[in-house]
Amino acid sequence: MSYEDWFRKDRLPHIFCAGCGNGTIINCTLAAIEQMDWKKDDTVFVSGIGCSSRASGYIITDSLHTTHGRAIAFATGVKMANPNLNVVVFTGDGDLAAIGGNHFIHACRRNIDITVVCMNNQIYGMTGGQGSPTTPKGCLSSTTPYGCVESPFDLSELAIAAGANYVSRWTSYHVKELEKAIKTGFETPGFSFIEALVQCPTAFGRRNKFKQVSDQIEYMKAHSLLKAKYDRLVESGEPVPTDMFIVGELAHRKRPVMGAKP
């Protein structure tokens, strides 16, 4: 596949740990871009700080590796000043939902025409495994040594409530579906948010009974509930399993858009 040309080959292999899902999400994003027929000169990747945010540096286009949590604010400036550019933001759960939460909801509200791919590993990986706003209740991290007591954020629901035009959630196991979702995100005018749950074997899996990388993949595979199935369960009044998360296209609508291509 020719999306390999989009990598800065002189920078590979990247810094992600063995088994980290971030690399998979970069592959899916670039595969989607390849289908969009975007030109390298017209595409800008923006990212903040964290494991996920290193992604922009491995891609050969113009890329902006910014300060912690501010990626979307920088991307807003890029897109508004030159709407002809395709702007893609790589971010993580800590970057997007904790320090950058305000920028996130306001970008959704403005419905600015950018695509945000969030690699949600449910932990702060780069600083060594501290609890993040999406760490599930009861999970262990270096700052929640007795199990996380706070309720986690549902990032996709947050994006929908704040007004994003396209919201979808998949995992690093669902590569084909994720690729398709990101492509749909690119095609949809307005703010597109794709949440990709990824495994973090080093900081999350190790502490939470996923001995092998594949254990966490198996867990994500077994605990993802398709949106269509969820809707059927709700319609028929059957109980929805509480330990599962919904995957699929969660919102796709046509609210007014800012910064679209002229």
Partner: peptide
Amino acid sequence: CGVCQLTCPDQA
């Protein structure tokens, strides 16, 4: 198919 290539986190 190409799933192995898409999944490989290290572009290997």
